[in-house]
Design a protein around this nucleic acid. Sequence first.
DNA 1: CATTTTCCGTACCGTAAGTACAGTTTTTAT
DNA 2: ATAAAAACTGTACTTACGGTACGGAAAATG
Lengths: 205, 205
Amino acid sequence: MSKGENTRERLMDIAQAGILSKGFWATSIDEIIAEAGITKSGFFYHFKDKNELARALLERYIALEEQLFDDIFSRARELHDDPLHAFMIGLKLLSETMADLPNGHPGCMVATVCYSERMFDNEVRDLNRKAVLAWRTRFLAMLEEIAERYPPRDDVDLKAVADMMSSTAEGGIVMSKAVGDPKVLSQQILLFRSYIRLLFLPESH
Amino acid sequence: MSKGENTRERLMDIAQAGILSKGFWATSIDEIIAEAGITKSGFFYHFKDKNELARALLERYIALEEQLFDDIFSRARELHDDPLHAFMIGLKLLSETMADLPNGHPGCMVATVCYSERMFDNEVRDLNRKAVLAWRTRFLAMLEEIAERYPPRDDVDLKAVADMMSSTAEGGIVMSKAVGDPKVLSQQILLFRSYIRLLFLPESH
DNA sequence: CATTTTCCGTACCGTAAGTACAGTTTTTAT
DNA sequence: ATAAAAACTGTACTTACGGTACGGAAAATG
């Protein structure tokens, strides 16, 4: 990593920490550059305005999430060949990963953008939309494979069930932040897992 | 309603619309007073600062939500005496109510506060926490009544299931906003309903 | 009719985003 | 070693916003 890239990453780290706890427009550039030990001109050399900072942060965040999902669900598939059981294992791993975050999940950049959408340009909003639709596609593929082998016990739209994974995460993060209890998020993921079990797993009499 | 209260309400209406679409700190006082046709001094007569505006908005929002839940689930109980079926009817009604919102759900003030928590004082954050805990209590009571008659088919913490109602709503709102499709929220509520059915309703062979 | 409530007008302060632009240091390629 | 490109610094400025201070006026109310 070149020196320029290094500084850029550092600025983004500092910005993200502030943004997820205080909100985007409450995190000042002055504050970011003070912590980074750089001047304002230096900041604007890397990002032409705050919107570009937001875009960069969102892109990086989305890529990291994709990586996390890839890691967890491919690991789960290694542990069990059946798509349903692998998915269940993956959800357990995900729940544990979330529970192990020292101060709870810091917040989702996607939700941050949603709750101040008008302040970002079309490019940022579109990036956000595409990330969520990519999650939908990812989980829909898993669910379709599951549904082939295990007929669902309720007439549901699998696309909506795929969205439920993301929705559970987003909702869980908000709830965790609201009540100040990091456990709520992992608990909600486990409840989604419980739903998947009841929806697909045949009753064992 | 006196003239003062009237103006106060109008200011809050304008502020809320801006806040839910742009975020709290992106909605300027100048912008609010311009739309309300009032001066800055007039604004600060009603709210000593923006924090007090946030507190007032949150209080009003929470009260309205409580009213909505009261209406829907008491109406549902009128339609069916059994707690499980009444809950299912209530969820259907809630889903329809959300689907009927012309431009989709405008956003949840509770989530807005969560995603800029450090910018609000303890009073506002505490108000937020209490509202979420009140939702938990409300739905937990319903679920306990259900669980008495219908033994759950999975070993779950009913408190977490109660939280799942709020989590589904919060997550659904974020997802709806992200993909730009108001239907996602009502869809997610119906999936929560599907979970409740599978969790409590005995299999009909 | 007196008083309180509900505002208006104006002037001001500090902070933040962003611009402009010239100059300087540090890397990197040749 | 040196030229060129990359990564900044420094200063000065503009605009917008949150918030304060304070005197006064219109309007509702008892």
